[in-house]
Design a protein around this nucleic acid. Structure first.
Lengths: 123, 123
DNA sequence: CCCTTTCCTGGCCACCCGGCCAGTTTCGCA
DNA sequence: TGCGAAACTGGCCGGGTGGCCAGGAAAGGG
């Protein structure tokens, strides 16, 4: 064996189905030499759901919302987005609000993270 | 749910790195309630390798900054981060400021995006 | 024709964020 | 023993953010 068999293998979970996620958490939590990653931690491998029945990715974002989302991911403020798209700050806020609602996010940072996770945007 | 939640969870392995694949096979092979998929079998979830993409140098972030960054990526506000880490909001702001500086970001959303791009964190 | 949806705009306001100033303690290293 | 880095805390304040209210213009379907 290689001498590094004392190091744990860090495994991340990316499962939408709560039941399956709980199941795997319980199953994998007690395995010696293996540890589940904490949120944000870099993992050696990731467990992803194969059957994506609860995730058709049909978040149905309008074109304008996609425009705003892309600029948000670049770190642009509402004022910058407004200037870039040639619309008012109020309208930008309106679209951001819709985005937060549709992406089930608590703020613009969370919205970008969620969108990136779902593949709606590419970082 | 179907009542067969006592059945085994079938897990597929998609790991290119032979060493890691062997390691995970050994680790996961003995877990009760869990079975590795035979080639071609439909699995409930799949274990995939996490990038290992080129990243010349990690930006020198302190442990505390990494803690704050991870919670930021979860969409947590400064207040939430403070509560989570058991420190004051002022200290959180202090770390966030350092993060923005080191990651060359204009705001927390930009910081998370940059960190994700550079592989410092995983979304 | 009416009516719904999408996109757009405005005002108002509580709260959050980030930058500035200041200070403390603890730790390791020269 | 001195000194810097890391971590932590506070006040202050301008500007950004998000939620609420209201409305208007245009496209498409009943």
């Amino acid at each position: 064996m290689s001498g590094d068999n004392t190091a744990e293998v860090v495994l991340a979970l990316e499962i939408d189905d709560p039941a399956l996620a709980d199941r795997l958490t319980a199953l994998l939590g007690n395995v010696a030499g293996l540890r589940l990653a904490t949120p944000g931690e870099r993992a050696a491998a990731t467990v992803v759901a194969r059957d994506a029945r609860s995730m058709p990715e049909d978040i149905a974002l309008t074109q304008r919302e996609l425009d705003v989302l892309a600029l948000m991911a670049e770190g642009a403020s509402n004022k910058m987005i407004a200037r870039q798209l040639g619309i008012s700050v109020h309208t930008v806020k309106f679209h951001v609000g819709s985005l937060l609602d549709k992406l089930d996010a608590t703020g613009r940072t969370d919205a970008v993270a969620h969108a990136a996770r779902r593949g709606v945007i590419e970082l």
